[in-house]
């Protein structure tokens, strides 16, 4: 690492990256066996597998900094207030349209973020970003294509996609919020200021949503509270109840 930075800030940053992929990967995996068509079932599982793999890398590194914890320790033994994912990824799947819209809105941010992280001053961060960015480029192509197809499909699919966008849009802003942790990351050259990604994001998302014949809601209101853990949605607790159950019920067992 070239510039010294507080381990705590770096730890928080890594949790934000890893918790996003952990929680979204979990949500996407809920589709397995229930998708609209076999080909989509298989594709969604690939996305979830990529996200789980990325989680192992981000949380693995976070655990290393946090006194030698494993990625599993962090995923399965923290309570909701210690999670640092944005609210967008923890909202329930809803219908296939909402799942794919959420995926697209996240992929767009994710791909831009990872692109910047590839030149991180921290080699470990840069290496994870380099691997993840290839996977995410495909996620974005797939989710973007599906959003366009369904937005500009039938009347029903259009209406459902617009509804999904209306529901999810208030969760987009949190991905671009900045705080003290981000300031330290910027100062150390580890990560960009999230606020600076917004312009590129708006251009990318605007282009796809226009092709999809969907309208971005006018309100710029943004829910927040996930990436600093101050106030998650009620949904996260239920997700963790399921995900962490075995580890909690049988402490210390090896699986």
């Amino acid at each position: 690492m070239s510039v010294s930075v507080s381990n705590d800030a770096l730890h928080q940053f890594l949790l934000r990256m890893g918790d996003n992929t952990l929680i979204l990967g979990h949500r996407v995996s809920e589709w397995c066996g229930h998708a609209p068509v076999l080909e989509e079932d298989i594709a969604l599982a690939n996305t979830a597998l990529d996200l789980i793999g990325q989680t192992q890398m981000w949380l693995g590194l976070a655990g290393e900094i946090d006194g030698g914890k494993s990625a599993d320790d962090l995923a399965f033994l923290r309570d909701a207030w210690d999670f640092r994912n944005v609210l967008l990824v923890e909202v329930p799947n809803g219908d296939f349209g909402r799942t794919l819209m959420r995926q697209f809105l996240f992929d767009a941010w994710h791909s831009i973020m990872l692109g910047r992280l590839m030149t991180s001053a921290d080699d470990r961060v840069a290496a994870i970003a380099a691997k993840a960015s290839k996977e995410v480029a495909y996620h974005l192509e797939r989710s973007g294509g599906t959003v366009v197809g369904l937005g500009d499909g039938t009347e029903e699919s259009h209406a459902r996609m617009q509804e999904a966008l209306d529901y999810l849009w208030p969760y987009v802003g949190e991905m671009f919020a900045s705080d003290e942790v981000d300031a330290q990351m910027v100062a150390a050259g580890i990560a960009p200021n999230p606020t600076d990604l917004r312009e590129e994001y708006d251009a990318l998302v605007g282009r796809i949503l226009t092709q999809a014949t969907l309208s971005i809601p006018e309100s710029q209101f943004a829910h927040k509270g996930g990436r600093d853990g101050r106030m998650h949605t009620e949904h996260l607790g239920h997700l963790l109840t399921q995900m962490q159950w075995l580890q909690r019920a049988y402490p210390g067992a090896k699986w």
């Binding site: 080909e39 495909y138 197809g149």
Partner: peptide, 20 residues
């Protein structure tokens, strides 16, 4: 083989189904 609405999706589906 596989099913897809168009060629573009067929390529993506092929990537997901046959190159796992």
């Amino acid at each position: 083989s596989l099913h897809a609405p168009d060629a573009k999706m067929a390529i993506k589906n092929a990537r997901d189904v046959y190159t796992r």
